[in-house]
């Protein structure tokens, strides 16, 4: 006649308890799970320990509250920062300014090049420029001497 297993007192209480918790959560490796299952079948004290743990878990799960008061999502939405619209407005302003400045820059570049070309085309025949670059930039002949000496005599 086989004697039923007695709860294995060689295993510390904490280790046995946590092994049962892992068994209930189905977290033990298959071979260890099978061994513990076999022992549970033979050991009434261990079976009672497992039953108490399962009952405790069921009591906690069953009686725990899991709902906020009505209208929770509305309360959350009221607390959201108005940030989502703000970046969009800022982004739109940035794009508008970017576009306006780009157009203005194109106009300035075209005008500068046009005026430069016009000045350069006059350089060999007229004006006071001493070089092509001065002519293109519309500069008169500027030197320290001409800046300091004011000559108001009419050209002869």
């Amino acid at each position: 006649m086989t004697q039923p297993h007695r709860t294995d007192r060689r295993i510390p209480n904490a280790a046995r308890h946590t092994r049962l918790l892992r068994f209930i959560a189905d977290e033990l490796p298959p071979d260890e799970h099978a061994r513990l299952e076999a022992r549970l079948a033979d050991d009434p004290a261990l079976r009672e320990e497992a039953r108490a743990l399962t009952a405790m878990q069921a009591a906690v799960t069953e009686h725990a509250e899991a709902a906020f008061d009505e209208g929770f999502s509305g309360r959350v939405l009221q607390r959201l920062p108005a940030a989502p619209d703000a970046p969009q407005a800022a982004e739109r302003l940035y794009e508008a300014l970017h576009s306006a400045f780009l157009r203005l820059a194109i106009v300035v570049v075209v005008l500068t090049v046009g005026i430069g070309l016009y000045n350069a085309s006059l350089y060999p025949h007229a004006g006071t420029a001493q070089s092509f670059v001065e002519a293109a930039m519309g500069l008169p002949d500027v030197s320290l001497e001409s800046a300091l000496v004011y000559d108001d005599r009419p050209d002869e």
């Binding site: 904490a14 308890h17 946590t18 918790l21 892992r22 743990l53 405790m56």
Partner: peptide, 8 residues
């Protein structure tokens, strides 16, 4: 597991 042991 040790916290769970003490808690349970």
């Amino acid at each position: 597991m040790s916290r769970l042991y003490r808690a349970t």
